[in-house]
């Protein structure tokens, strides 16, 4: 008797994958519901689309970093607190420079650089805790969540730091405005970063190693992949992306605010997992993660437009997450 061939038959066609199904479902549901109420025009208006993209920018950039970390088999719970810390540090540096030398473009450049770097430092710290102290990523980043939030609150003196009157730089206003969203540099930075992340994952050796480490760390090590360096790099990269997201947040909120980004980590993890990534690593794509963020923002926006109570928003997001992952599981079960 011959045994089963090592290769199964090629799939005749491929069904749309999880995130697309969820996206289409949410879109159809909302369009239907809103059409019944006769508010379809508002929901699909250009203005509303602008708001959607505007609100999605920060979580989407954070989601890119989270995607990288999840693919490597880790998790980063500290992103929300890091975003808050970045806004505070950026504001502190900006106001200090402004006080010392008056209005100057250098102020903004240095402040933004400081903000992004502090994000990178937080990421590096996560990476060192995970690789050198061998802490589980959940514990390491949960600890960093507390530390970052605490440092942010301390640096801000337990208040919200505003710009000194008239000291708001022009670019902050530009980024903060959703009226001209399609030319918003914040949004275009997201597009650029998303493309770069996709290229990193698909075309580079580092991206390949990321999937390998997340899929089977022991095998990756055996095959000569520098697992420690890969992990250090991925947490640092995620930190830098979160740092950039923090700078956008700083502009959006026009302040350094230590209470920003609370539960952002949960939103972002939800979005990336809806987008097909797995908490056990080795899976995930940029397109999926971005769709996940879009679905999340769509639900939030749609629910407030539709005038349903806010609790529905939580229930919908939770149900969608569970339904989506179940669907993926069920489909995988059918394949194998």
């Amino acid at each position: 008797m011959s045994t089963s061939p090592p290769v199964p038959h090629a799939k005749p066609f491929s069904l749309p994958t999880g995130p697309w199904v969820g996206f289409i479902a949410v879109l159809v549901l909302f369009t239907a519901l809103i059409a019944i109420k006769g508010e379809l025009g508002t929901f699909l208006s250009l203005g509303n689309l602008r708001v959607l993209l505007h609100e999605g920018t920060v979580p989407a950039i954070v989601a890119l970093g989270m995607l990288l970390v999840l693919i490597s088999g880790g998790i980063d719970l500290s992103v929300g607190a890091t975003v808050a810390l970045v806004t505070v540090v950026t504001m502190r540096v900006y106001t200090a420079m402004y006080a010392a030398s008056g209005p100057s473009p250098t102020n903004s450049l240095v402040a933004v650089a400081a903000g992004v770097s502090i994000g990178g430092v937080c990421g590096l710290a996560n990476g060192l805790l995970v690789t050198k102290l061998q802490l589980p990523p959940f514990v390491a980043t949960l600890g960093m969540l507390g530390v970052s939030r605490g440092v942010a609150t301390w640096l801000a003196g337990r208040t919200v730091l505003p710009f000194k009157d008239g000291g708001t730089p022009e670019w902050v206003n530009t980024v903060a405005s959703s009226q001209t969203e399609f030319t918003n540099p914040g949004l275009w930075s997201l597009v650029l970063l998303a493309i770069l992340t996709a290229v990193l994952l698909r075309l580079t050796v580092f991206g390949r190693h990321l999937y390998a480490v997340g899929s089977n760390e022991a095998t990756a090590r055996l095959c000569g992949v520098n697992v420690t360096r890969t992990k250090l790099l991925v947490y640092t990269l995620a930190g830098l992306l979160t740092g950039w997201a923090g700078v956008i947040m700083f502009a959006h909120s026009n302040s350094g605010n230590p209470t920003l980004g609370e539960q952002l980590e949960l939103d972002v993890i939800t979005a990336v997992v809806i987008g097909g990534a797995s908490l056990s690593g080795g899976k995930g794509t940029v397109v999926g993660a971005m769709l996940g963020v879009l679905i999340l923002i769509l639900i939030k926006n749609g629910v407030s437009l539709f005038n349903v109570p806010v609790e529905m928003q939580y229930i919908l997001i939770g149900a969608l997450l569970i339904a989506n992952v179940s669907l993926n599981r069920w489909r995988q079960g059918k394949v194998s």
Partner: peptide
């Protein structure tokens, strides 16, 4: 020692 999420090519060249 196999990475189950990768393709044959990725596993061989890892």
């Amino acid at each position: 020692a196999i990475c189950p999420d990768l393709t044959v090519e990725a596993n061989v060249t890892l």
